[in-house]
Amino acid sequence: MVAHFNCKAWITVSQSYKPEELLNTMIEQLSRKDVLTLPDEGINSLIAKARGYLYEKKCVIVFDDVWKIDFWGSIRHVLPQNSQGSRVIITTRSEQVVVFCKESSVDHVHELQALSEEKA
């Protein structure tokens, strides 16, 4: 699957995250190089840098272990709406996050089932 994409990123979000750190991690993974971030570089500058990099690319980005609904509100503006076929995957344990992140009927939710005792 990954071979069909120009770039990829796997970002662990967790309970305590900082949007600036997530954006830095995303930019570094997508570009596959260390990104020079200025100490006073604000969130808007990082969003512009990420959007500029993602523009006209087909990427797969996984945001793993999302706990809070405000995460999607701050990160969705980074992802450009283009026709390249990019994919965003969000893993969460929270039903509230699922409801908040599902914005249209084409968004797919896959609910995992617990393993049986034999398989666990």
Rank of each mutant, 00 (worst) to 15 (best):
R32Y: 04
N44Q: 13
S105H: 10
W72S: 05
M1A: 13
M26C: 02
G73A: 07
A3E: 13
S74D: 15
Y17K: 01
E41Q: 14
V35R: 00
F100E: 14
S86W: 08
G52M: 02
V2H: 08
F5P: 01
L22H: 03
S83H: 12
S105I: 00
W10H: 14
V98K: 11
S31H: 02
I69R: 13
Q113G: 07
I89Q: 09
D64H: 06
S116H: 04
I11F: 03
K8V: 14
G85Y: 12
V88Y: 07
L30E: 08
N24L: 06
V66K: 05
Q29Y: 09
N44W: 10
E21L: 07
L22A: 02
L112K: 05
C7L: 00
D70A: 04
L36K: 03
W10D: 12
S83F: 10
V98H: 09
Q113Y: 02
M26T: 08
K119T: 05
S16W: 06
C59P: 01
S45N: 10
G52L: 02
M26W: 03
A3S: 12
V66T: 12
P39N: 02
C59E: 00
V35L: 05
I75L: 12
V35T: 07
A9C: 08
Q96E: 12
S74N: 13
L38Y: 09
L112M: 13
W10C: 13
E20P: 01
K33S: 15
P19H: 04
N82S: 14
S74I: 10
V106F: 13
A3Q: 12
W72P: 05
T25I: 05
K57M: 03
S14W: 02
F71D: 08
V98L: 09
M26L: 15
S94Y: 06
K119A: 10
C59D: 04
D64G: 09
E111Y: 07
W67S: 06
M26Q: 06
L112F: 15
V97E: 11
E103R: 15
S116Y: 00
N82T: 15
T91I: 08
C101D: 07
D107K: 13
R51G: 11
I61W: 00
C101T: 15
S45V: 02
V2A: 12
L54E: 08
I69P: 12
A50L: 01
K18R: 05
V106T: 15
V109S: 11
E95M: 11
W10Q: 08
K33R: 13
Q96T: 07
C7P: 00
T12Q: 09
L54A: 08
L36W: 03
I75C: 10
S14Q: 08
I11Q: 07
D64K: 00
E28S: 11
M1Y: 14
R87M: 12
L23F: 03
A9L: 10
K119N: 11
L79D: 04
Q84V: 06
I11R: 02
W72I: 00
E28M: 08
Y53N: 03
V97M: 09
R87V: 15
E21K: 03
E20S: 07
D40W: 01
R87T: 14
D65N: 11
T25D: 14
V13W: 05
V66W: 01
V78F: 03
S94R: 02
C59H: 07
P19R: 02
R51S: 15
L30S: 06
M26V: 10
F5W: 10
V106E: 14
I89W: 04
G42M: 04
F63H: 09
A120P: 04
C59L: 09
P39K: 06
L38P: 00
V62A: 07
